[in-house]
Amino acid sequence: MTLYDKIYKWLDERFKLRELLPPILKHPAPEYAVSNPLYCLGGTAFLCFLILVITGIFLAMYYKPTPEEAYKSVQNIMTAVPMGSLIRSLHHWAANTMIAAVMLHMIRVYFMGAYKKPRELNWVVGIFLLLTVTTFGFSGYLLPWDQLSFWATKIGTGIAGSIPIIGGYISLILMGGNDIGADTITRFFALHVLILPMAIAILLGMHFLMVRIQGISGRL
């Protein structure tokens, strides 16, 4: 009996691995999905998400969400922190690639008609994922607190504020005041590193569960 067998047996006696694992491990991936690279787009988006989580955690160790410190802390990441520039640039590229991959994934689902019965609700979850992912981008854009991030956010919150009736409240909630300042940066930070990650984790869980239950849709 090898060490591997011993460990397997030990776990099997406690967790019934023999019953639990085969349906997961032997579950067939259909040939048309394996041979067509268009089916890789969802997985590509997910890989980017994982890279974003890891690089994001490292960035959060050095980033300081205040108007006085934000820019300096990012500058510190770019120039002084070991590998800091690489980590931030990876975060930047993974974010843009993720959004591109999500959009292309959506286009493939649309043109293959993969949203039809029984997958209607997975498309709806997908639209919420799209909204979450673009909001991630919007909230992250402000954090470096450079000229571009400040003024792009100014335009963005201005557009949200121009919505009739509720616009004023939306921009108040977003900015935490009447102008972009200390309260805006902490709000965007909380959104970017706490609220949106939780939202996307729940949505992705639903998305993958539905793909698993319903299977991948057929050929074009």
Binding site: Y71, Q75, H91, H92, W145
Partner: peptide, 12 residues
């Protein structure tokens, strides 16, 4: 990421 690092312009 190594060829085109993320940019940082002038402070806000």
């Amino acid at each position: 990421a190594s060829l085109y690092p993320a940019s940082l312009l002038k402070p806000a």
